[in-house]
Amino acid sequence: MTATATTPRKRRSGVSGAAPARTAPVRDSGRSFVVVSRVVLVALAILWLIPTVFAVKTSLTENGIAALGAQEILADLSPTLESYVTLLSQGDIWNWYLSSFLTAIVTAVLTLLFASMAAFALSRLTFVGRTLIYLLIIAGLMIPAQVLIVPLFEELRFLQLLNTYWAVILPQVPSVLAVFIFKSFFDGIPKELEEAARVDGAGLWRIYWSVVMPLSRPVTAAVAILTFVWTWNNLLLPLFVLSNPNLMTIPVGLATVQGTFGLRYADIQAGAILAALPVVVLYLFFQRQIVEGVTGSGIKG
């Protein structure tokens, strides 16, 4: 039991910092091998950064110069924030930010609560129907969300939720993946810790809320951040269920407005970068949790 409890920790340190341990066996296998692999890696990294760097550079160029093409954009030495000022001074983008933040945060909170409660029951309680629930959830993994969009649209229309934030939030709350991530983490927490609390007279809810959840902070952070990012980036669902421009999320708003930008290439790229910025900031702050969440979800999913 203690062995399983340490797996998440081992995996984390493995992903973030075990690299030096691996250097020794490879390094003695020929200097040229190492040099070639480094050159290839650097080349690939540059290749991977080019689209982003070019977009950033374009966004910092005047619309007039950007419309002349890549050569003029690269040669331009007078960066300007004009496009960002233009976009941010229009009210729409703030509405879209607000929509994206609200829907992503509420979705993340509800997902965390519902998924962790279900995972807690599946991990700690033996009850009739447990296997059934587990199988049902596994089956849910196979349903592609895109296929549900038509009946979901009809359902939300029937519930009169179209053009409300709930139409974006509620369908994204039942995250099967989140239950899996939580359950596999809970399974690794030694039960002795709860026994102590039980002796002190703690009820089930107190064990869940004050013992298990505080011990699960890393996995909670990972699920929260990934849910936030996925909800933030979702295009299909908000595209279908929100037609009111004031309620649109950032991806939908940008997708609908880009057509009217015409030749204002700098503005288009600045819009894309403004949409990406919160996610990039989130990544820079929570790099470890995100990496862990992705590897955890992949291994369990």
Binding site: M117, L125, T126, F127, L148, P151, E155, L170, P174, V179
Partner: peptide, 27 residues
């Protein structure tokens, strides 16, 4: 424990049923 198991799963199951199972069958 049976009861509590289902109670703890209920919020997830309700959302799961409403927005995953139901659209699947309705579709």
């Amino acid at each position: 424990e049976n009861l509590r198991g289902w109670i703890y799963c209920a919020p997830f199951l309700i959302a799961f049923g409403l927005f995953l199972i139901w659209p699947t069958l309705y579709g």
